[in-house]
C-alpha cells in the first residue's frame, strides 16, 4: 500500500514536471541589444516580449546623468514596442523599462549599450521625444 502511494506520488510529480513550466512575460529581445556596441545612434528603441504586456515606463540615460523619459507609450497590451529615442552623443547608455504583465506582475529591466564615434550626426534631432 505504501509503495503504491509512493509510486502514485512520483508519477504525479513527474507529470507536473514534464509539462511546460509557467512563467510570466519576459523581454525576449531588444534593439539595441543588451551590451551592444553600435556606431550609429539608434533612432528608436524596440522591445519584444514573450507575451503581451502594458509598458508603463521607459527611460534612457547616460551613466551618471538623470535618465530621460521616453514616450508617449502605447496605452494597450502588446508584445512589441517601438519608441522614438532622442539624439544620443557618443557614450554608454542604459534603457530602463517597467511593464505590467497579464498576470499583474510588475516587470522591470535594463538594456545597456554603447554608441561609438560618429553617431551623433546620425540621429535626427527633430525626432527628439519630449518627456512624458
Amino acid at each position: 500500500m505504501k509503495n503504491t502511494n509512493l509510486r502514485a506520488g512520483v508519477a504525479a510529480f513527474a507529470l507536473l514536471a514534464a509539462q511546460h513550466a509557467f512563467a510570466h512575460a519576459q523581454l525576449s529581445s531588444s534593439m539595441p541589444a543588451d551590451e551592444a556596441v553600435i556606431d550609429v545612434a539608434p533612432k528608436e528603441v524596440t522591445l519584444h516580449f514573450s507575451e503581451p504586456v502594458r509598458l508603463t515606463a521607459l527611460t534612457v540615460g547616460a551613466q551618471g546623468e538623470t535618465p530621460r523619459e521616453l514616450g508617449p507609450l502605447p496605452g494597450g497590451m502588446s508584445a512589441d514596442f517601438a519608441v522614438t529615442m532622442p539624439a544620443l552623443e557618443d557614450g554608454r547608455y542604459v534603457v530602463s523599462w517597467r511593464a505590467l504583465s497579464a498576470d499583474t506582475h510588475v516587470l522591470t529591466g535594463e538594456i545597456s549599450f554603447a554608441v561609438t564615434s560618429g553617431s551623433a550626426a546620425a540621429a535626427d534631432p527633430s525626432e527628439h521625444s519630449p518627456a512624458r
Binding site: 507536473l16 509539462q19 511546460h20 509557467f22 512563467a23 510570466h24 497579464a102 498576470d103 499583474t104 506582475h105
Partner: peptide, 14 residues
C-alpha cells in the same frame, strides 16, 4: 487570482 500559479493550462491544479 494572481501570481505564477494563476496562469497556464494547469491553473486549477496549481
Amino acid at each position: 487570482f494572481t501570481g505564477h500559479t494563476a496562469g497556464g493550462d494547469r491553473r486549477w491544479l496549481l
